[in-house]
Design a protein around this nucleic acid. Sequence first.
DNA 1: TGATTTATGTACCAGTCTGTACAATAATGG
DNA 2: CCATTATTGTACAGACTGGTACATAAATCA
Lengths: 217, 217
Amino acid sequence: MVQKELKRPRGRPRAYDPDDALVQATESFWHAGFAGTSLDALSAATGMNRPSLYGAFGDKRELYLAALDRYVEVSRADMVRALSDDVPIAAGLQRVYDGALALYFAKPEAPLGCFLIGTAATEAAVDARVRAKLGTGLRELTRTFEARFRAGRKNGEIPPGTDPVLLAEMAGAVLHSIALRARAGDSRPSLQAFSRAAVKLLCGAARPRRRTKGSAR
Amino acid sequence: MVQKELKRPRGRPRAYDPDDALVQATESFWHAGFAGTSLDALSAATGMNRPSLYGAFGDKRELYLAALDRYVEVSRADMVRALSDDVPIAAGLQRVYDGALALYFAKPEAPLGCFLIGTAATEAAVDARVRAKLGTGLRELTRTFEARFRAGRKNGEIPPGTDPVLLAEMAGAVLHSIALRARAGDSRPSLQAFSRAAVKLLCGAARPRRRTKGSAR
DNA sequence: TGATTTATGTACCAGTCTGTACAATAATGG
DNA sequence: CCATTATTGTACAGACTGGTACATAAATCA
């Protein structure tokens, strides 16, 4: 559908796919962090030799920043999809957490948690651009939660007295905690259980109080 | 009170204080992470030359692990103190968060967040011992919350139907989020506001629902 | 086909990294 | 005062670091 090479560029064709290479580079950084990932490792992971890396992405830092950008954008899009208005808030929240867990445990032998939280946090103290991307990335995700809670308040899904900003921050905090704990070695079932309880608390605490027992599905 | 040099050891005396040096090393790691901190930096920060560092702590990794241990122990002790039973739960929780913020913003020009969360998360994926320390560290803090909630349930501070494990995990999640967001550049007042709202939510949601306005002290 | 353009592969540079060998130093024990 | 012990300071080894210069290869354009 999408036409890729309407017109071939002039010189020798690339031996790699830039998007693919960025994904591979992301996985390398995801595993060992920015400082812990060498250009040799990036070269091996992407299949590109060093000069090609520089030609395509600039230096190591620029490549890392590009990887962060892509990751945040994909995560945001996934969240928006999971939180779609035609699913009740609690179910949407749970979909976000389930999706996150699937990503964080994608490599079952070595759970990596969240790429942004797991690697950019360290670099943020040293590199202002990383700090900015980490900050805006986290805020974007929180704001996605907030938008859903706000819509839910308008819908009547959530009583008018509740604060969508606070609920969004709490939902974000749960996500942060899961991301971190996955990388810290906590088991997936335990985090899944936590996420379910947290959803119940956040969506239950928001309403006028009712029985928790015997709720359908 | 504590006698330090009841008997001087045999050889040439040390030119440094081991505890002090560990604190200095911690600050270095706190800033740039494990991989980002060189032995030269550690040497400069501690005032010890390389062979002394090796003699005192072993290699760089061992030194980092010792720094993590000390940090977790101090944090745990601070938390236990803040959550003492003779202060209401909500106030105790708030003391924990206020203390954390004071620590995370100790260097106002460059907020470093939490040492454990900010640096060990990155290294955890590569180093099993760091992962273990991160995991047990986080769990210890959460269990400290849990103990306080459990005591509060026994006291009547919190209704018997609530789950202390969940509340502790939520309180921990708020702490994790604050730690992260401090390092991501969020302002201290915004995080303080978040912590206050979170305390209200966690301690308010736990009780049978009542007015928030006009509660004494 | 030959000129042009772009990307690749090799090889390398200068600097930095972690860790250590070794001599000098400063204390104690007899 | 000399032997012993432990730490310090210097200097260095060997590996690895990020980044680049340069010749080669593969495509298009005329």
